[in-house]
Nucleic acid binder design. Structure first.
Length: 268
DNA sequence: AGATATTCCTGGAGGC
DNA sequence: TGCCTCCAGGAATATC
């Protein structure tokens, strides 16, 4: 579910509740997420003070004054709920602060994960070490180098977190549409000239989505329950058959077992 | 290296 | 109302 903009939106929401606060309670209600929750989560977090929050790719980071960093990934269906009026059966992890606030990590499909790392080892962690650059740091020249010689479809390469980290199905489809690039094109054959359209398109679509509070689909909401409105702005994603400005229509097909939406008229 | 399939899960949508 | 199939923001893994 959540791609970079949704994780960024989530982190910003959590920051208002967690930053600078002392943690007074941690409860694992259901530890079997994608990986088992760390058994020493409560022992290491209770009594610690949050010194800052951040994001890397689709991971959220919560740093504490004990040199621990909690790293969460929301998988397909994860979200944090702030001060839920009542608990849901998919609220798997609860965190309480010294202000009496409650955070609940809700994840029906349980594809998400929570890890607790030593802060100094975060960059070397096996989840982060293979990741490519943040999209906002990407340049057309660097993307050109990363795609060099690759025969796989550009759509699939942009989903590969080792090439560039943080994009998912929605924003790859939208960015390729904006840049006028056919998702089937071999990555290594996309010219630098075209990458000079694609890279700004990636940054723009992500920035607009963050500005809109993310994209609410079936079950995504910001932690405070507010909806993300970027889904109103999709040009192609989940819009099979919709008319395109060129006079053609949006088409859907499968790539790597997932849906790709694009306009055959605009994307070459 | 690449293409494809499968797996981990739950739930919503749509067909009948 | 129910039962069925298909599909979903991700990512790791296996197989050809």
């Amino acid at each position: 579910m959540p791609e970079l903009p949704e994780v960024e939106t989530t982190v910003r929401g959590l920051r208002t509740v967690l930053d600078g606060r002392r943690l007074t309670g941690v409860e694992a209600r259901r530890p079997d997420l994608r990986r088992a929750l760390p058994e020493d989560l409560g022992q290491r977090l209770i009594g610690a003070t949050v010194t800052g929050l951040g994001r890397r790719a689709k991971y959220g980071l919560v740093h504490t004054d004990r040199d621990d960093t909690l790293v969460f990934h929301l998988g397909m269906s994860g979200r944090w709920r702030i001060d839920p009026s009542e608990l849901d059966k998919h609220d798997h992890l609860l965190i309480e602060t010294d202000e009496g606030r409650t955070l609940a990590l809700n994840d029906p499909r349980r594809f998400g994960s929570v890890d607790l790392l030593r802060t100094g080892e975060v960059d070397r962690w096996s989840g982060f070490a293979p990741l490519g650059p943040e999209p906002f740091d990407l340049t057309p020249e660097e993307l050109k180098r990363r795609l060099a010689g690759r025969e796989a479809a550009i759509k699939l390469l942009l989903l590969d977190q080792r090439i560039v980290a943080g994009l998912g199905n929605i924003y790859v489809c939208e960015a390729l549409f904006r840049a006028g690039i056919n998702p089937k094109r071999a990555g290594g054959t996309v010219s630098l000239e075209r990458l000079r359209r694609l890279v700004p398109a990636i940054k723009a679509v992500l920035a607009e989505a963050i500005e809109a509070g993310g994209s609410t689909l079936r079950d995504y909401a910001q932690p405070d329950g507010a909806l993300g409105y970027f889904s109103k702005s999709f040009a192609v994603y989940d819009r099979e058959g919709a008319p395109c400005g060129c006079g053609g229509a949006v088409r859907r097909f499968a790539q790597g077992g997932r849906s790709t939406w694009y306009c055959p008229g605009c994307q070459r």
